[in-house]
Structure formats: C-alpha cells, structure tokens
C-alpha cells in the first residue's frame, strides 16, 4: 500500500512539474510534507540543499530520499519510477510526432521559432549560474563588495580553456572543483 502511495505521489510530481527543478519544489513540498507528512519541513529543506550539492534532477533526488525513508530501496525505486513515468509517456509521444512530421513546412516554421528561444533560455539559465557563482549566495545587490574574485578568475580560466582548446567540459568542471578545494580553505 505504501508503495502505491509513493508511486502515485511522485507520479503527480512528475506529471505537473513544468519548467525544471525550481518550479517543481513547491509541488514536491506539497506532496511530501503537506499531504503525506513523509518529511518535516526542515528535512525537506535538507533535501533541497543536498540536491543542489549533488548531480541529478531534484525530483529524482527527492524520490530517492523519501522512498528510502518510507520503503527502503524498493521504495526509492518505486518513487523514482513514478517520477519518470509521465515524462516517459509524454516525451515519447512528442518525439514520435516530431520525427513523423518535422518535414512539414508548418512544423519547420514552429521549430525555426523555437530554436532561438531555446538558446535564450539556456543563456538565461547560464547567466543565473554566473551570478550565483560570482556573488556566492550574497546576491547581485551586494555590489562589488560581494564579489567572489576566486570564482571570477576560475570562470575566466575555464571559459578560455573551453573556447580555445575545446576541452571536455566534465574535466573542466572537475578541475574547477579541485582548484576550489585548494584555494577556498585559505580565504574563507
């Protein structure tokens, strides 16, 4: 019974979260804290914090964390399955339609309009991350005083390496992490 409940809760989270991680947060809170009481509010805050510290979508992270709590490893698997199933059905349907009709001129037109919009959305997400990295948590309103110069230099070096030598982005990310570990203990 608990597995069914887990599955159904995370199925709804998967189905109704549009627009990525942060948009999904209130939805997850509603299901996990308010309706089912599986986590307290402070435990939920921990899940958010840990999600930001680990790779992977917040929905999957929450599903794993809550599932483990409630129903062990099977619980985690059931909750995760519930979370990805709606995407799976909807995205596969859209993919089928896309590959079947993308030759049509009206679909071509729609896609021509979408491509620049997608670039803009990635740019928007990227700039948000730049601000987050440069003004670590303090927010851009803290002005020049709030700037983390180590992050600025790291960003500039990483950007140059990526542009010039087209290095593997994962290696660049790991390198930045290692430098962070070497430098931050001395200045924070």
């Amino acid at each position: 019974m608990i597995y069914l409940k887990l599955f159904w809760s995370f199925f709804q989270i998967g189905l109704f979260s549009f627009g990525g991680g942060y948009a999904a947060m209130p939805l997850i809170q509603n299901q996990v804290v308010d309706i089912n009481g599986w986590l307290t509010m402070s435990e939920f805050a921990d899940v958010i914090t840990i999600s930001q510290m680990t790779p992977g979508p917040i929905g999957i992270n929450a599903a794993t964390f809550v599932g483990l709590r409630i129903g062990g490893i099977q619980g985690a698997m059931v909750a995760t399955l519930g979370c990805v199933l709606p995407s799976c059905v909807i995205v596969l349907t859209l993919a089928y339609i896309y590959y079947k009709y993308r030759g049509l001129s009206v679909v071509q037109g729609v896609l021509n309009g979408l491509r620049p919009a997608v670039i803009a959305m990635i740019a928007s997400a990227g700039l948000t991350l730049v601000i987050l990295a440069f003004w670590n948590g303090k927010g851009i309103t803290s002005g020049v005083d709030g700037i983390d110069y180590v992050a600025v230099v790291l960003f500039a070096i990483a950007f140059m390496i990526l542009r010039k030598w087209k290095m593997n982005p994962v290696h660049v990310m790991i390198g930045a992490g290692v430098i962070g570990l070497c430098v931050y203990p001395f200045i924070l």
Partner: peptide, 22 residues
C-alpha cells in the same frame, strides 16, 4: 569548497555553449 569551485566551472561550460550557439 569543491562545489564552490565547481559552480564557476559549470557556469563557464554553459556560457561557452551559449556563445557558440549565438
């Protein structure tokens, strides 16, 4: 510390791709 360093790296990865696409 690792994550704080990585954050700058991640930002650079995204901006790099955005520049190429633009």
């Amino acid at each position: 510390y690792v994550l704080r360093g990585m954050q700058a790296g991640v930002a650079a990865v995204i901006i790099d791709v955005v520049v190429t696409m633009v």
